[in-house]
Amino acid sequence: MPDDDRIRPTEKELKARRNRSIAIALALAAFVIIVYLGSLMKLGPSLFDRAM
């Protein structure tokens, strides 16, 4: 497909996409931290007390 036939995102669309991407990254990071800390609280220190 020639380059000219492609839909070129506008500045506004690119800015909105960046805004969404940052929000998704922050939400995922928060989720990982929540699950990590929550697991520690739920299972306690025994979580790490395992035979190698």
């Binding site: 839909i7 506004k12 669309e13 969404r20 940052i22």
Partner: peptide, 13 residues
């Protein structure tokens, strides 16, 4: 069709 969304995180909130 085929366009990127202009929705921001605020719209989803």
């Amino acid at each position: 069709v085929g366009r990127l969304s202009e929705a921001t995180a605020g719209d989803f909130i």
